[in-house]
Structures are given as structure tokens and as C-alpha cells.
Design a protein around this nucleic acid. Sequence first.
DNA 1: TTACAGACTGACTAAACAGTCGGTAAAATT
DNA 2: AATTTTACCGACTGTTTAGTCAGTCTGTAA
Lengths: 186, 186
Amino acid sequence: MDKRKQILDAALKLFVEYGFHGTPTSLIAKEAGVANGTLFHYFATKDALVIALYVDIKSRMSAYLSEQVEVQKTFKDTIREQYIASVFWALENRLEYRFTEQFKTSPFFAQIAPKEIEESLKPYYDMLNRGISENLIKPQPVDLLFTLISSQTSGLNQYLLNHQFSKTKQHQVISDTFEMLWNMIT
Amino acid sequence: MDKRKQILDAALKLFVEYGFHGTPTSLIAKEAGVANGTLFHYFATKDALVIALYVDIKSRMSAYLSEQVEVQKTFKDTIREQYIASVFWALENRLEYRFTEQFKTSPFFAQIAPKEIEESLKPYYDMLNRGISENLIKPQPVDLLFTLISSQTSGLNQYLLNHQFSKTKQHQVISDTFEMLWNMIT
DNA sequence: TTACAGACTGACTAAACAGTCGGTAAAATT
DNA sequence: AATTTTACCGACTGTTTAGTCAGTCTGTAA
């Protein structure tokens, strides 16, 4: 019954299928089962809808991660938890994942304030800094480390999304690649 | 004087700035300094132009790589050469790199025949297979290894593209991250 | 029970768009 | 030299698009 949500859901599905500009607002409204005008009641412009969708997905992902991940006994275990949760999120939210991948390389991404990005990255940077100061991982710049870890995760996502593995096999690939990641940063 | 090339150049620049559908064909023609109709003389549709641009860039990149990279004394050296050349290509062809990143996550990418993708990947897969059979790298599936290496490269590109480092510093980051990559796959 | 606010509608419009077409000029083929 | 093919032009068009607007419906609270 939440029309705003319905619009966002429809937009997500269609954007992933046809691209941002390849999807007319009229089609989004139709798919969402609302009137054309309703879309513009909730979102001033189409661009605002795209941005709002990204922000919405990012916040849901953050919520998922902080819900799933608890600090573990060791640093390595904590990082592993993070890694696993990130990959699971992508597997369980394929459309959302593909949308964010598309968004991040698009010109829209420039409209996200650098400050907000930095803000959302801070906890990860802090954690990595802790790891460095305790000599648990390589003393490289944290933003480099973070970028490499993220890329690894997205590489793995790509791999898992392109194959249909059983849960067992999935787990095995995830833990194998985590060990590889760990070898990389230590 | 090559109008086809002018159109592709203009399209590249504008697509990176405004996105595929955010760029009207009329603007591409204007930027290229040709008539509107000329664009459609060379490319049947706008979609065809986007695809042609991707194919063109990919082939220029392949040419660059096979020109730069020669087989080295050791397996590790060969992989390092590949790694360095890939990163240099992205640094020297920033627009092209950003375009391909955008393209690969877009719905357009589905229009590239899987066979062609496989074809272009074959030499890399062969090389990795060789490394595995000689016990030089981890015995993981080659497509997984390749995806992880590619992701690493694109992570590094992102890092280097976001910072302005001196040539010396750039080299240092590249060789540091290559050692990390090597630790990952061995 | 009336007054008001905000959710919601869908027909509408002005602008933008991809692609066409009738034509010219130059190059290639005969 | 004649003919055909190709490169190129830019005004034009039918369609599609984002966004508007005048007004209806629904809930709430005075």
C-alpha cells in the first residue's frame, strides 16, 4: 500500500533491465500500479528518483551489514564476517546489487556528496587502521586497502552471480577466496 | 578527416560525461562537427553506435596489450607485465576506461555475444592454466582466478584515477599491489 | 458537519528525440 | 565519358518523454 515503495521497487526492476534513461517514468508508474502524477508527487524529477533509489538501497544494505556482523574474537574473524555478509547481501539482493554497480559507474554518481561517501566508509577505514596499528595487516594506505578489498568482493559477486552453485559450493568458494584475500593483505 | 572516427571520439567524450541515453545523437553530431544524417550513415541506430564504440575500444586495448606485453623469463614476470600494461592503458586512456566500466554494468553489455567474450578471454585462461599445471599458482578455477585478477586491476585503476600521484609514486603503488596480488594467487 | 490538508489521479503539453529523406558532390567502376 | 556507388548534408517528422495541473478522494480534527 506504500506507493513510494512501490515506485522504488518498480524503478529498481526496470532500471536494471533497461538502464536509467532507457526507462520512461510512465513505465515506472505503470509497473508500480500508480498514476503518472503520483511518481512526481514523491520525486520531484526522474533524476531525484534515481538518486533516492540509490540512497535507499545503500541504507538498507548498511542496516543489513550492521545487523549481521558482530565483532568477533579475532581481527581476521571480524573481517571474514564482513566479507561473508557483503557477499550474501549481493546474492540475496541481486537487483539491488546490479543497480548499485550500474549507478557507481554512471554520471549520476557524481551527484552523491563526497562527504556522505566518506562518512559511510569511516567505520571500515577505522577498522583497517586498527589492523595496521596492531601489525595484523600490511601498512598500506587504508583507502587503497579498502578499494582492493571491495574490488575483491565485487569480483567474487560477479563470479557467484554468473554461476549457479549449491549453498555448500558457494560457502566453499567464499571461504577459499577469503583466505586468498587475507593472504593479499597480510 | 575520418568522420567515423570523429563521431566515435565525440560519442566517447559525451557518453562518459552524460551517460548513454543522456546524450542525444544531435549533440554527438554537433560535437563531432558533422551533420546529423552523417551519424546515421555510419551507424544504423544509436544503439549500434554504442556497441561499435565498445568494440572499437576493446580492440584498441587488445592491440595495445599485445604490443606492450612480451613473454618474460618467468611466469611471474609475464603476469606482472600484463598487470602493468593493463593499468597503464587505463591511465593513458581514462575516457575509454571509464566508458568500458560504464558499458560493462549496463544493459547494453547483454548485446555482446558470449562467444566473443570467451574468445577474447582465451589467451588469459590459457596462461593461467599453464601456471596452474606448473604449480606456480593456486589450483582454483581459471575463470575465478581471472575475475579476481581483473577486479584487483580495476580496484587499482580506481585508486590511481582518484589520486594524482607522481610517476614514481604510481610505479611504487603498482608494484606493491602486484606483490599483493601475487600473494593472493600463490 | 464542516473545513482543511495531503495523497492521488490521468489527461494534457511543450520540448526533445531518434531516425528519415531528398538531394548534392565527389569518388570509384564501367 | 558515362554511370553507378558512396559520403555527406541538414531540414524535417512522428513519436516519446518528463513534468504539469486542475481537480477528486480520504482521513482528521475543530
